[in-house]
């Protein structure tokens, strides 16, 4: 518990900053919704003049963009991108910073098992992300209430919003695994940024060519937001695969970390 609380405190500032950033993106984007709604037909015409590939790559679906949930799911792609960076950073940093800052030795000479160290670290990642998402959803819902004239299906709204948490967990667990496998991570941010953007580009690429297989490869494609709007539900197979991925990466991280030498100098 002491490690958990300590770690939570260490991550407090970054969690606040990330949360505020996500909220800011949502507020910014959603504040232009009234304009889009008012001039819907004009807007659609402008969009229609763009090449189809570009629209697909940036996640625009013309027929639904002027409805609130349609617009929100378009905006949400970028919130998810930002969220993914947070998740990856957090997952990768929570262990790496002990190695980079050479404080690992401090923990490892304390009477705690390595798996206890990892457990508290992992729990901090989940807790921080959970806090971020709860605050974000509250703020986004409030904003939705302000900008949308139509009545919003809040169940679907929250279902869309919750996907961020899941995608963040996938990136966080991937980062967690990397931090255990890669022996000398010098700095977390460049590595996490490039990884997240690689998957994002894969997402754009997959959207343009319409290749189904890509959906399994990039977490950004695990949730088809249009599907969620149509069916008020998730596609089970992606939830299952995503969950397996998370459990497997965390399990491997535990196995590797409890057996490996920690080089602190």
């Amino acid at each position: 518990m002491n490690m958990f609380l300590h770690e939570l405190k260490v991550n407090r500032k970054s969690t606040i900053i990330w949360t505020l950033s996500l909220v800011a993106i949502a507020v910014l984007f959603l504040s232009i919704f009234p304009t889009i709604e008012r001039e819907g037909e004009e807007f659609k015409k402008v969009l229609a003049s763009y090449p189809e590939g570009v629209l697909k790559a940036v996640g625009v679906q013309i027929d639904s963009i002027t409805s609130f949930l349609g617009f929100y799911s378009y905006v949400f792609l970028y919130i998810m991108l930002c969220g993914a960076i947070q998740g990856m950073n957090l997952g990768m940093g929570v262990l790496s910073k002990e190695i980079i800052g050479k404080t690992a030795e401090f923990l490892l000479t304390k009477p705690v098992a390595r798996k206890e160290i990892l457990t508290s670290k992992a729990l901090v990642v989940v807790t921080s992300l959970l806090i971020t998402n709860i605050v974000f959803m509250g703020a986004a819902a409030l904003m939705a209430n302000i900008v949308a004239k139509e009545s919003i299906d809040y169940q679907v709204f929250f279902m869309i919003s919750a996907t961020n948490f899941f995608v963040q967990l996938m990136f966080a667990s991937f980062g967690f695994l990397l931090s255990v496998l890669v022996s000398r991570i010098k700095s977390v941010l460049p590595l996490s940024l490039s990884t997240v953007f690689a998957f994002f580009i894969l997402y754009m690429f997959g959207s343009v060519i319409g290749e189904k297989a890509v959906r399994y490869l990039t977490p950004f494609k695990y949730f088809d937001l249009a599907y969620i709007i149509r069916h008020s539900g998730y596609e089970a197979q992606y939830i299952i695969i995503g969950s397996i991925f998370i459990v497997a990466t965390v399990a491997v991280s535990f196995i590797v970390f409890t057996k490996k030498d920690i080089h602190t100098v």
């Binding site: 260490v10 800052g101 401090f106």
Partner: peptide
């Protein structure tokens, strides 16, 4: 334990 080089938070 006291390490040769001390690193803390």
């Amino acid at each position: 334990y006291l390490p040769s080089e001390v690193f803390y938070y």
